[in-house]
Amino acid sequence: MRKFLRRFYVFLIFLFLYAPIFVLMAYSFNSSRSRGAWGGFTLKWYRELFRDREILTSLKYTIIIAILSAVISTILGTAAAIGISHMRKVPRSLVMNISYLPVLNPDIITGVSLMILFIFANINFGFKTMLIAHITFNTPYVILSVMPKLKQLDTHIYEAALDLGATPSYAFWKVIIPQIMPGIVTGCLLAFTLSIDDFVISFFTTGVGVSNLSITVFSMARRGVNPKINALSTLMFLSVLILLIIVNVRMSRDIKAKKQREATLI
């Protein structure tokens, strides 16, 4: 009985989480435009989705900005993390505390403050401003992912490399970077997903003609319900699901392999 109740509770919560998504998916195949009625199966909305200039352009900008901002903030943030860890105490805590600001501050405040800056500095709103904004809110997350790895770093290994005749830059690339690589990868992925998902900050820092997917969905949803958005949601949901399953399967395979290796070592 207890077990049944628990399962039922979990079922109800997941129903609440997934029902809206599944309804959207089902209705993306509905030929009738009205929500109340089922007019038969169709792929019409998908065809229209792929012909929609507005959506396709915003998809393009979303991906370009996500890749560019992830790469730039990973480089900027990794270098910053390494540099910060070599700073003296006072400047280090100053820089770290300021870096926390975009993480802690509500997005809307980061958004409007950047908007004021761009208007103040007379920069034209568009691709450039949105990219700058994304790099700005992504970099602190990269620093926060790389920092713990740097703290775990055994400095003796680096010194050993130098003693064995490696130049500082060779030791840096061959010893330090490989050890903090997991943190760099996490930071990069985090930056990429944050950039793809961002709405608020982009909303305040974009200009005419440049918008990401979130902004397009927002302006379409304000005009009312649109079956093309259902089709878009279905595709996005499936790609997220597939991506997460792949990551999960690979991770559990890695853990298994690691366990096996440890077992054979013992």
Binding site: P20, L24, I196, S214, V217, I229, S233, M236
Partner: peptide, 9 residues
């Protein structure tokens, strides 16, 4: 999944 799409649902 995109925050906007979830709200739109």
């Amino acid at each position: 999944m995109n925050f906007l799409l979830r709200t739109y649902a």
